[in-house]
């Protein structure tokens, strides 16, 4: 599951940034390395919500800085969703 989530997040970021998925590394900074500004972060949140039927909270969205944090966020949201079902 973890690997899949990481891959899916990287593919999503790739679609939004023009990078290739394999070029995107966990430790990369969304702003400095991938040029993801706050508008793109909102697009990412919207895409995550739509694709996975989860809710990203304001503070989670504001705090996103690195690729690995985006992966962790999606993993946490999916775990939470699974527990509720």
């Amino acid at each position: 599951m973890g690997q899949n989530v990481a891959q899916e997040v990287k593919e999503m970021l790739a679609r939004m940034t023009g990078f290739e998925p394999e070029e995107i590394k966990d430790e990369m900074d969304l702003v400095k390395d991938l040029g993801v500004d706050s508008l793109k972060v909102i697009e990412i949140a919207t895409a995550i919500e739509k694709t996975y039927q989860v809710t990203v909270k304001d503070n989670q969205l504001i705090k996103l800085k690195k690729v690995k944090e985006a992966i962790q966020l999606l993993q946490d949201l999916l775990d939470k969703k699974a527990k509720r079902q």
Partner: peptide, 9 residues
């Protein structure tokens, strides 16, 4: 949608 963030798009 969100409290502090508008839904750009």
């Amino acid at each position: 949608w969100k409290i502090t963030i508008p839904q750009v798009g």
